[in-house]
Design a protein around this nucleic acid. Structure first.
Lengths: 187, 187
DNA sequence: CCATCTTTGCTAATGTTATTAGCTGCTCGG
DNA sequence: CCGAGCAGCTAATAACATTAGCAAAGATGG
């Protein structure tokens, strides 16, 4: 039998495709194996188990998101940077709602996962430091920003907002709330 | 054999207990049946399937949350009401993190579920109408409030915030962001 | 108080999935 | 060209959801 030339990355590729096409609940090893053109047990040569596939998908999403946010924030600062960050975040979620929903928010002690989460958080912290925030205030600001952005993302990705109109405007208000609550130029 | 005297409500009670004790992922019919002191297939006399159990748990959580929010907002208005609402929301999540995480945000066409979601949303809308908001502005404000509150709730319930200190203060900042973005007394 | 009818709970059986064990034949380094 | 290791396979086990069909508990009507 010709080898399929699988690799951990290829398994994650297949997993992400399954999620995109059929939603996070459809992420089973059977579905991934099928997508990869391989029998289910063969996956175990490349990943430890289903939990690891989920973890790797989360890492993948975090990395993609990190790249988008880094690019969006580049060359901007303060409210301008926050706006760009928040819009880039939502743009990613709108493009890949299922993928975002498949991301596990639970802190994962596994090194790769922890590092990916740190890098993602790092972008947010860097932007917020542009307001002169540090120490405890920086933590509070980062948590608030994450909450707003993630809350909207989860609700939108889950179709939790009844009326599909003006989501753009709703998000604009949320952005204004966040920037309005961060230290102003006079503070 | 003596009958167990089960009922749909009793099944949901068992399901909620399972979730509280072992997390949303542990919500299986086997676990619920075990908790209820009954064989797994017996549950099908009271609920259609696992999906319905999940739906009923969601409805239960929404109802509990609705009661809390209604009570919190009673006799208050504007920023005072929003603060009370947001604090009551978080208090519930802190008390029952797994239960909150088990709640499905996906809009459910099933009448009971839709009604529960409507009642919950109704409280938020009522509070926001106190700002003189209506029509489209009301929708934007409600979405922003929901995003903030739900985002913080999800992250906290999932243990997504690294440092467990000052969560109270972080939430205070988020509350300030929300109230600051709603029409002020002069608007 | 008995006969019956409905309902509730049970056991048995099927299908899906995750996971492990053990086999076989590519494929590459020597 | 050859052996070692690795990738993929089939077979087997266990947990779970779900369905079918049986049996007894409890209500109901005479």
């Amino acid at each position: 039998m010709p080898r399929a030339g699988l690799s951990p990355d290829a398994v994650v590729d297949a997993a992400v495709t399954v999620v995109d096409e059929a939603g996070p609940a459809a992420l089973t090893l059977a579905a991934v194996a099928n997508r990869a053109g391989v029998a289910t047990p063969s996956l175990y040569k490349h990943v430890r188990n289903l939990a690891e596939v989920r973890r790797l998908v989360t890492v993948r999403v975090m990395e993609e998101l990190t790249d988008r946010l880094r690019e969006a924030a580049l060359g901007r600062s303060r409210d301008d940077a926050v706006r760009a960050l928040m819009r880039a975040y939502r743009a990613y979620v709108v493009e890949h709602p299922a993928r975002y929903a498949a991301m596990d928010q639970r802190p994962d002690p596994e090194p790769r996962a922890a590092a990916a989460a740190d890098r993602l958080l790092g972008i947010i912290l860097a932007v917020l430091r542009g307001y002169g925030l540090d120490g405890e205030d920086l933590v509070h600001a980062a948590r608030s920003l994450r909450s707003a952005v993630h809350g909207f993302a989860v609700l939108e990705a889950a179709g939790g907002f009844g009326l599909p109109e003006d989501l753009e405007k709703s998000y604009g208000l949320l952005i204004a709330m966040v920037t309005g609550g961060l230290p102003g130029p006079t503070a």
